[in-house]
């Protein structure tokens, strides 16, 4: 399974590296989302600083939608999905590979977005260990849930509209937990941010389990 995961993740990341869609389109889109938030809040630096962590994770969530749609649209043409089905790779391995590739792209986008909220919103990032742990768990959870719902909507005519409808509500606990942990890390709320990592970890574990168990079946029906 792990070998299959590495193969699939390598394939997806190679395709992304060659097409440069993530760097040329998704990363600029992420920064534009931050700019739009800035316009919406009328350049009120105090408000932007205080809601910066929330805006950061909303932007990550929007980027997740693009990354997941991109990950499965790659295989829509030329019967590539049939090739994946017939490849004999383990379903759980394919799931882990695709989720790992999406997670790798999200990590890069989070770095861009973190730079963005520091420069544009004046956020003061402190407690790097808590911030990085939060990012790691939330990214794994988003990538796992995104991959599960991505394959569910992959073969459908309404996939572009169905995926956000399925994924956004499900990912709400990630946005809530990660935002609260970040707010605690930068000192905007009292209390320990570490307790939110339990929610993020449980979410990630649940969707990793569902994905490993069900992805093969879902891929067959996609």
């Amino acid at each position: 399974m792990w070998r299959d995961a590495l193969l699939v993740a390598g394939k997806d990341l190679r395709v992304e590296a060659r097409s440069r869609v993530t760097t040329n389109q998704v990363a600029p889109y992420a920064l534009i989302v931050l700019f739009v938030f800035g316009f919406a809040f009328d350049q009120d630096q105090y408000v932007l600083t205080h809601i910066g962590p929330g805006l950061f994770w909303v932007a990550v969530l929007l980027c997740t939608l693009l990354a997941v749609q991109r990950s499965f649209s790659l295989e829509a043409a030329d019967g590539a999905r049939d090739g994946l089905r017939l490849s004999g790779l383990d379903g759980g391995g394919i799931f882990l590979g695709k989720a790992a590739a999406i997670a790798a792209q999200l990590v890069a986008l989070e770095a861009v977005l973190a730079f963005g909220i520091v420069v544009l919103f004046g956020a003061h990032l402190a407690h790097p260990l808590l911030l990085l742990t939060t990012c790691a768990l939330a990214t794994v959870g988003l990538a796992a849930a995104g991959t599960v719902y991505g394959v569910m909507s992959a073969g459908l005519r309404v996939r572009e509209t169905l995926l956000p409808l399925l994924l956004l509500p499900v990912a709400a606990p990630i946005v809530l937990g990660a935002t609260q942990a970040w707010l605690a890390a930068v000192g905007l709320v009292t209390g320990s941010g570490w307790r939110w990592l339990t929610l993020l970890g449980a979410f990630a574990a649940m969707y990793l389990t569902i994905g490993v168990l069900a992805f093969g079946t879902l891929l067959e029906e996609a």
């Binding site: 599960v148 569910m152 909507s153 169905l162 399925l166 499900v170 029906e221 996609a222």
Partner: peptide, 25 residues
């Protein structure tokens, strides 16, 4: 979202399996 997924059409068996897994989630 689950009800929207049920209305997507296509192969009945595939739709039913997708819907069942989504319902559990």
């Amino acid at each position: 979202g689950y009800l929207a997924l049920r209305r997507t059409g296509g192969d009945p068996l595939g739709r039913a399996k997708r819907s069942a897994i989504t319902a559990l989630c």
